[in-house]
Write a protein that binds this DNA or RNA. Structure first.
Length: 572
RNA sequence: CGGGGUGUAGCGCAGCCUGGUUAGCGCGCGUGCCUUGGGAGCACGAGGCCGCCGGUUCGAAUCCGGCCACCCCGACCA
């Protein structure tokens, strides 16, 4: 491919509406262009890289025994009503009507379609297990798309669905996918971690997310500093410390706290640590108000509360509801004197010997409160977000926080969909049995963005060789020199015949322009052909990542490049 | 959906507050000369419904109202 004929509109300046580095670089490198919010066109370079990711995913899925299919984008509402998700999926599901006024949606995921397909075609345990996957454009009408390909509304995803006859089989299918995912992301050259995750509205019994480690990630990962425990912040468990002191015999006393509302204000005003304050949160749910007690220096983890109480919806109460529940104004809520409303508390409040709480009365707090004596708690549990330094739930270690980009998510679904949609088979005894399902997603377009997020420098992208749109770029200096062009032509043909994707920058540009573009595009190897080296019968080979340049005889180029790729692979 | 911001040439921006010639600058683009190892230089040139609709005014990129789009923060989210 000659660069002079390829649509690669590079930009010198950062586009104004790009925030994160991968978005900026993909725009600057001419890989993608935005059509509208959260929807992008892939230009030749971007599409080549995307196809490389797809191909790696495809090979690993095939190797794991999954079979590729291709499912419809437009789906009828009937299936979604059958699974029960038509009413719960929310506005993220783009709905519309066709000319016959039939309700349809654009597929944000394909559990319904695949379950429908399999229940029609598979009837015997002899046909199981089966694992079907596709690489497809998904549409989710995100409230706020951002960060380019990282969170688009339209995006490319690989989704696989396994169907098993037995529980053990389902766990084996899950395990195989987990291994396939490890291999896939490793081949992509990503630094990642598999973490325990909440399974969310997709449902199911357990799940893992695959997180690419990057500071710009939208998810927070909690990991142990001495064992391999790692979890999404939403899910991360915390080992709690039992109180190390006996219950006190003190009695609560009132403290006048005029207009002092937040934990920080109370701590400053009363000259106490936030860790001795009990935060009283009033929440509104579909089953009425709930009171959650947390230590002042901790944050609520809504997912934990939702899972504990089996709630679908939860939000902070407004001032009216707070008045109704506590009898006092917002900012002065406390657990003492709350009746008829469930009260749940995080374990950590038991580590407070003498606590400060709101008095449920304007401008008043209570001090000397003993969490074990002075108020009712219906349940203690783990309701807070993990923080740096918390104790690991699995070992004596402590927990660390880091940021990650979710590129894959695997779920053990169980019979959630097979039950709702009656996907069953006959077992060896001739008994009708529900299939046990799993589903496994990879954000293919997001992998590309994550790879760039993790591999770049001030000059541009540094593609891991397996994802690079081209492996080599030939930069000729002096477009009018026959000697240089002849040498380039030979090198170009040799590389292609060795199956190395090669781009030839044959433009009549000044060297600086060509070098800058080559760096920006992030092509792993640059072969520079110019007068100087050529006079000695050499070309230059520059490694984009190491920035090392060596002189190579043209006939040795292929073997040298292959060796450098091999050493890159070995380093993974 | 709530809060904030921005829409002026392909891209990045100035001009707007304080209305008044032909709306500017840098990059990019075209032609020519020149140059060729890290985004050169000179000359000439093309390219604008100043987001859209309405209003105020002798006169609107500029003031007012409405709408639309995009971006940021939040809620939300396999």
């Amino acid at each position: 491919m000659k660069l002079s004929r390829l649509l690669v509109p590079t930009l010198k300046e950062d586009p104004a509406d790009a925030e994160v580095i991968s978005h900026k670089l993909m725009l600057r490198a001419g890989m993608i262009r935005k059509l509208t919010a959260g929807i992008y066109s892939y230009l030749p370079l971007g599409y080549r890289s995307l196809r490389k990711v797809e191909q790696i995913v495809r090979e690993e899925m095939d190797a794991a025994g999954a079979q590729e299919v291709f499912l419809p984008v437009v789906q009828p509402s009937e299936l979604w009503k059958e699974s029960g998700r038509w009413d719960v999926y929310g506005k993220e599901l783009l709905r519309f009507k066709d000319r016959h006024d039939r309700e349809c949606c654009l597929g944000p995921t394909h559990e319904e379609v695949i379950t429908d397909l399999v229940r029609r075609e598979v009837r015997s345990y002899r046909d199981l297990p089966i694992n079907l996957y596709q690489i497809q454009t998904k549409f989710r009408d995100e409230i706020r798309p951002r960060f380019g390909l990282m969170r688009g509304r339209e995006f490319i995803m690989k989704d696989a669905y396994s169907f098993d006859a037995t529980e053990e089989g389902a766990e084996e299918s899950y395990r195989q996918m987990r291994v396939a995912y490890e291999k896939t992301f490793q081949r992509c050259g990503l630094e990642f971690r598999a973490v325990e995750a909440d399974s969310g509205p997709i449902g199911g019994s357990f799940s893992h997310e695959f997180m690419v480690l990057a500071d710009t990630g939208e998810d927070t990962i909690v990991s142990c500093d001495c064992c391999d425990y790692a979890a999404n912040l939403e899910k991360a468990e915390i080992r709690n410390e039992p109180p190390s002191f006996p219950p006190s015999s003190s009695t609560p006393e009132k403290a006048h706290t005029p207009n002092v509302k937040t934990v920080d204000e109370v701590a400053n005003f009363l000259k106490v640590s936030p860790a001795t304050i009990i935060k009283t949160l009033i929440l509104r749910s579909e089953r009425g108000p709930v009171v959650v007690l947390l230590r002042g220096d901790h944050e609520l983890n809504e997912v934990k509360v939702k899972n504990f109480l089996n709630l679908a919806e939860m939000e902070m109460a407004d001032a009216n509801l707070i008045l109704e529940v506590t009898g006092g104004p917002l900012g002065f809520s406390g657990p003492i004197g709350i009746h008829n409303v469930p009260v749940i508390a995080d374990h950590a409040i038991l580590t407070i010997e003498s606590a400060v709480v709101g008095a449920n009365k304007a401008d008043t707090h209570l001090v000397n409160v003993d969490p074990r004596n002075h108020f009712r708690v219906d349940n203690f549990g783990d309701f807070r977000a993990a923080t740096e330094g918390d104790l690991c739930p699995r070992c004596p270690g402590t927990l660390r926080l880091s940021k990650g980009i979710e590129v894959g998510h695997i779920f053990k679904l169980g019979v959630k969909y097979s039950k709702a949609m009656n996907a069953s088979f006959l077992d060896p005894e001739g008994k009708e049995t529900l299939m046990i399902m799993g589903c496994y997603g990879i954000g293919v377009s997001r992998v590309l963005a994550a790879a760039i997020e993790q591999n770049h420098d001030d000059d541009g992208i540094i593609f891991p060789p397996p994802l690079a749109p081209f492996t080599v770029i030939i930069t000729t200096l002096g477009a009018k020199s026959d000697a240089i062009n002849d040498a380039a032509q030979k090198v170009y043909e040799n590389l292609w015949s060795a199956n190395i994707d090669t781009l030839w920058d044959d433009r009549n540009e000044r060297p600086g322009v060509k070098f800058k573009d080559a760096d920006l595009l992030g092509i792993p190897f640059r072969v520079t052909i110019g007068q100087k080296a050529l006079a000695q019968g050499n070309v230059e080979l520059r490694n984009r990542q190491s920035k090392e340049t060596i002189l190579v005889r043209p006939e040795d180029l292929v073997s040298t490049i292959v060796a450098q790729i091999d050493s890159w692979t070995a380093g993974q």
